[in-house]
Amino acid sequence: MEASFREAFGEALLEAGESTRNLVVIDTDVLNSTKTIYFARRFPERFIQIGISEQDAAGMAAGLAISGKIPVLATFSMFLLRSWEQIRNTIARDNLNVKIIGTHSGLSDYLDGASHQCLEDIALMRVLPNMTVISPADDISTRSLFHQALELRGPVYIRLGRDNARRIYRDYDDVTIGNANILVEGDDMTIISCGALVAVSLNAANILGKKGFRPRVIDSHTIKPLDTETIIKAAREASPVFVIEEHNIFGGLGSAVAEIITERTPTHVFRIGVPDVFGTGGRSYEELLRYFRLTPPEIVRRIEGMINGL
């Protein structure tokens, strides 16, 4: 089933608004796009419009957290990065209870092109002390992980796509912050992914299975703190490791996985993502995945090529 990341978030936010009275939402004039509009209509007195000024919005979120609120700052992940230094110097440094939602991440904002396609946010957020970094794979896990993030004390960054969320999970209880999910068991290779590419990875694994491979597929929705136990175990039991993500291959989940595997149990880690280039516009999300060779058949072809090169 095809669902939408931002719809799932907008609905989860509305639910949270009912149950969490000190939750406030900060918008930078994109409420229609991020779907915080559902919350804005229901709780106008707790919806704070800041205008097109992300740096001011990050400071506002910090101040509201200091005054005892739980601020949810939601905007396009790309433009959120304008306030990276404010997030670093106030929200992360003072460990403030701000929930930061970056929507339209990766290639999901296909039509808007390179200026809007954020392929750097995982790298920039996971380098911040105190920050939890999450990239849900579908609508169910978006809702579940968002609610869990509200229960955590401290800053959380949740990376969301725009729409195009193929459903993977059945139940809210299927995902827990900090625990990677083994979706398919296998022992001759491991595919680790996060976000919308988990669904793509599952399809790729299916094709690989038909070719006689036995891939293990892991959804590492929590990028920080990384579930090192599950990843180290996979590296030992089902090597080599392929990390598939909608992010620059530098600094993303692939780098995070390579860092710990190199230290603890060195084996081959291949990063499959956007190869250190900027995005480009396309007419559909699928068209862009094809362009960046991130469709299931392309991924299978690349994995086979990498294995042959070993």
Partner: peptide, 18 residues
């Protein structure tokens, strides 16, 4: 880091009003 204090103060001030 300069230029950020007023935004934070606004957040505290708005939170206090709420």
């Amino acid at each position: 880091s300069l230029g950020q204090g007023l935004s934070i103060a606004n957040g505290i001030a708005l939170g206090m009003k709420m």
